[in-house]
Computed example of a mutant assay.
Amino acid sequence: MFLSIVLFVLGLLILYYGAEYLVDGSSRLAMSFGVRPLVTGMTVVAFATSMPEMMVSLLAALKGSSDIAAGNIVGSNIANIGLILGCASLIMPMAVAKTTLRREIPFMIGASVLFFLFSLDGRLGFFNGAVLFFFLLVFLFYCLRTARGAVNESVSSLIDEFSATRARDSFKSVVGMVGLGTGAELMVRSAVDIATTLGVSEVIIGLTVVALGTSLPELAASVVSALKGQMDISVGNVIGSNIFNLLFVLGICPMIRPIAVDPSLLRLELPVMILFSVALIPLLVPGYRLNRPRGALLLTGYLAFIGVLFL
């Protein structure tokens, strides 16, 4: 038991620093090619911060721990909105583009509903994964069409600055990927051992401990972006990460090996995930801002959800 806890913490640290390297390297690479901050957040940074979920869910599915695989994604998506957007907006109230409310958030809600419908029979198979992955390609095509915006003087100087370090940023991205794989392996192995020892279901472990662990990169990226005033990256990272979790992770994993979905997820956690996604619209429409009171409401809702899980 003690060894499992040590390995879990070690895996979490490796996962965190691997994600930090990958986020930093990949986002700087994207900026060096003049990609707009919002699109960078929704694609490059979101992909990078979704890699922990991908690695953990894939390894869990391959090891026969499907409950951790599915629970991890649902728990991460809830944490991304409730915990991460809540914390980031408490640090720095964030403005949200009208196009985000009209396009990206509805797309995230649609992906969440589609995942719920596919889960009604208790499993995600190859066909389900292929359909989810197809919609990921649709999302990426949309992002590519809006990738490059008007380049002003400040953005142009950033492009020049980042272009000089492309080789180093590429190396950091590769090191980050290796760290993610190693950390995910340690986390999954130790999480299963801890759940077995304590008699806690793998679903709860996936929804809480593992989900929080794999959401740390998103938390770090969003909080750092908020502190730097780069709110486009902060908001785009969360929305894009949720879309990638649903369409990329749950698209690839079932095509490699079917994932079982615990019936309890359909009763509570999946509806809560959809509720958090839908709640963003009324919270953001007034003034197109997520201010501190609204952020506090999201954070309170997340803490209440965690409390209900353990009660």
Rank of each mutant, 00 (worst) to 15 (best):
V188T: 08
M231T: 15
D169K: 05
T146V: 13
L266I: 10
I78V: 14
L186T: 06
L227W: 14
G251Y: 04
A60L: 02
P293L: 03
I5M: 13
R166L: 10
G183F: 07
S76N: 09
G179W: 09
D232G: 09
I205Y: 06
F310M: 12
S65Q: 14
S222I: 12
S215Y: 04
I204N: 01
V113H: 01
K98E: 14
V203K: 10
L284N: 04
V39C: 08
V238G: 09
R145Q: 13
T196S: 14
E269M: 02
P52N: 09
S154T: 14
V131P: 02
A60H: 03
S119F: 04
F116Q: 02
S156P: 00
G295P: 10
P286Q: 02
L180V: 09
F133Y: 10
V174W: 04
S50N: 09
P52R: 04
I204Y: 00
V200W: 11
M54A: 11
L137V: 15
V131F: 03
A30M: 07
G86P: 11
V113D: 01
V249Q: 04
R292V: 06
T146Q: 13
V155S: 12
A88M: 11
I239A: 06
V210K: 03
S157Q: 14
S277C: 08
A279L: 12
G129E: 04
L311M: 12
F171V: 15
E104F: 00
E104C: 00
A19I: 05
I81H: 03
A69P: 05
A164I: 04
D67W: 06
L85D: 07
I252C: 10
P286L: 05
I73R: 03
G129F: 06
I5T: 13
T182V: 15
G179C: 11
G181T: 07
V235K: 03
K228T: 06
A97G: 14
D24F: 15
V151R: 11
M54E: 08
F244R: 00
P93G: 06
L38G: 01
A211I: 07
G251N: 03
D169Y: 11
F244W: 00
A296K: 04
E202V: 00
V56Y: 08
L83N: 12
M42K: 01
S201I: 01
V175T: 12
L212K: 05
L311D: 07
K228N: 10
T300S: 15
A88K: 06
V209R: 03
G34F: 09
F141R: 10
F134T: 14
G206H: 05
T196P: 00
M177H: 03
L266D: 06
G149W: 05
E202N: 13
N245L: 03
D67A: 13
L3H: 12
I91R: 08
R145K: 14
F33W: 13
M51W: 11
I281L: 15
L38N: 01
F305L: 03
L7R: 04
M55P: 06
L266E: 07
G149K: 02
G213L: 03
C253H: 00
S76H: 09
K172V: 01
D67S: 13
S154C: 01
G71P: 10
S32V: 07
